[in-house]
Simulated assay, not measured.
Amino acid sequence: MSMSTFKALVVEEQSDGSFERSVKQWPIEKLPDNKVLIEVHYSSLNYKDALSSTGNKGVTKNYPHVPGIDAAGTVAKSSNPQFSSGDKVIVTSYDLGQNTYGGFGQYIRVPANWIVPLPQDLSLRESMIIGTAGFTAAIGIHHLQHNNVNPESGDVLVTGATGGVGVMAVAILSKLGYSVTAATGKMDQKNFLLDVGASKVIHRNEVQDETSRPLLSSKWAGAIDTVGGIMLDTTLRQTKHNGTVACCGNVLGHELHTNVYPFILRGVHLAGMDSGNCEMELRKELWQKLANEWKPESIEQLSRECSLEELGSEIDRILNGQQVGRILLNLTD
């Protein structure tokens, strides 16, 4: 390959300690010395990407850096026999976009064991509309099904429903026949959530109970919680016997103040949604489902497309809590 540079969104630390991001040509030799070089066609914007783009050392330790925890494209070069030039692949999670140059550039170079072959019934574009957000939602739904929370079990709550994980959870659960109650602080997006598949949309305040009552009236057969804090505590206290709550977020706080009664009197399950270190066997299984029976009917409706040059304003929007749905980054132009 003769090309020496590629276009990327690069975040650089300045002499005064501030961070600056810009779209520029970046030397391909700066990519890490891993086995598989991938030409990135699509990526997507996640909250962790926005943090990395502003110099958050808890996400990315060293700069300059190219963020992007999601990438989908074709193998350009491989020294691992598992992959050949031209193979269509997905890379999410692990260290991509955190301390390894990520999907906000036209090329990445990653270990072979980070890579999922693109399922036959999924396009590269669709895979990045789903991205880490949809894959995380899929893990939560896997937990619900594993614990026998089925469409016949009753209503499922999704908190933070306009965010990436939330909107994907609403869409997938709806596709599978669940009755979904979407909780959000953005009631102006009610029609959007109904169109995506929610059966009912409620204000998030309806799920926040600050009393000390150890149990509340049973409402939910299960829940996908993306915000944590008091919302997660209230959801646990409202979950029915043998229900499951899957959680992945902490926007309302990383501490969980609750009590044992939902667990010892109702048999409620609390399951974590860790997409970053999901075992490869389950990872491939869930991507196959997302390509087929779990693929949302309204998948294109879930995202807006942007270019690298437009990505900066979208990063600002997600940091300000203004993002709705998914942002698809198109790197093919």
Results as ranks from 00 to 15, higher is better:
residue 1 M to H: 15
residue 2 S to G: 15
residue 2 S to D: 15
residue 3 M to I: 12
residue 4 S to N: 14
residue 7 K to T: 07
residue 7 K to A: 06
residue 7 K to V: 08
residue 9 L to A: 13
residue 15 S to C: 12
residue 16 D to H: 10
residue 18 S to Q: 12
residue 18 S to G: 13
residue 19 F to N: 02
residue 22 S to E: 12
residue 24 K to D: 11
residue 26 W to K: 06
residue 26 W to F: 15
residue 29 E to D: 15
residue 29 E to C: 09
residue 32 P to N: 08
residue 32 P to M: 10
residue 33 D to H: 14
residue 34 N to E: 14
residue 36 V to L: 02
residue 36 V to A: 03
residue 37 L to Y: 06
residue 42 Y to A: 00
residue 46 N to F: 02
residue 50 A to L: 05
residue 53 S to I: 02
residue 56 N to L: 11
residue 58 G to I: 08
residue 59 V to W: 07
residue 67 P to G: 10
residue 69 I to V: 15
residue 71 A to F: 03
residue 71 A to I: 03
residue 72 A to M: 08
residue 73 G to S: 08
residue 73 G to K: 01
residue 75 V to M: 01
residue 76 A to Q: 14
residue 77 K to S: 15
residue 79 S to P: 07
residue 79 S to A: 12
residue 80 N to T: 04
residue 82 Q to G: 13
residue 88 K to G: 07
residue 89 V to M: 06
residue 90 I to H: 03
residue 92 T to W: 07
residue 97 G to E: 02
residue 97 G to V: 07
residue 98 Q to T: 13
residue 111 P to N: 04
residue 115 I to E: 00
residue 117 P to D: 06
residue 120 Q to D: 15
residue 120 Q to K: 15
residue 121 D to N: 15
residue 124 L to K: 01
residue 125 R to Y: 02
residue 129 I to W: 00
residue 133 A to N: 07
residue 135 F to G: 00
residue 136 T to G: 05
residue 141 I to T: 01
residue 142 H to V: 12
residue 143 H to K: 13
residue 147 N to D: 11
residue 148 N to A: 11
residue 148 N to F: 03
residue 148 N to M: 07
residue 148 N to T: 11
residue 164 G to S: 03
residue 165 V to P: 01
residue 167 V to Y: 00
residue 168 M to K: 03
residue 170 V to I: 09
residue 171 A to P: 00
residue 173 L to C: 05
residue 174 S to H: 10
residue 175 K to M: 09
residue 182 A to E: 00
residue 183 A to M: 06
residue 187 M to N: 01
residue 191 N to S: 06
residue 192 F to I: 00
residue 193 L to H: 05
residue 193 L to M: 10
residue 194 L to G: 01
residue 203 H to F: 10
residue 203 H to Q: 10
residue 207 V to P: 03
residue 207 V to H: 02
residue 216 L to K: 06
residue 216 L to V: 04
residue 216 L to C: 09
residue 219 K to L: 14
residue 220 W to P: 05
residue 220 W to R: 01
residue 222 G to P: 12
residue 222 G to M: 11
residue 223 A to Q: 03
residue 223 A to T: 05
residue 228 G to Q: 10
residue 231 M to D: 08
residue 235 T to C: 09
residue 237 R to I: 05
residue 240 K to C: 13
residue 247 C to R: 05
residue 248 C to A: 14
residue 255 E to A: 13
residue 261 Y to G: 05
residue 265 L to V: 07
residue 265 L to W: 09
residue 266 R to Q: 12
residue 267 G to N: 05
residue 269 H to I: 12
residue 270 L to I: 11
residue 271 A to V: 10
residue 272 G to M: 11
residue 273 M to W: 06
residue 273 M to A: 10
residue 275 S to G: 13
residue 276 G to R: 10
residue 278 C to K: 05
residue 280 M to E: 09
residue 284 K to N: 14
residue 290 L to G: 00
residue 290 L to M: 11
residue 294 W to V: 07
residue 298 S to Y: 10
residue 304 R to K: 14
residue 305 E to D: 14
residue 306 C to N: 06
residue 307 S to G: 12
residue 311 L to G: 02
residue 320 N to D: 15
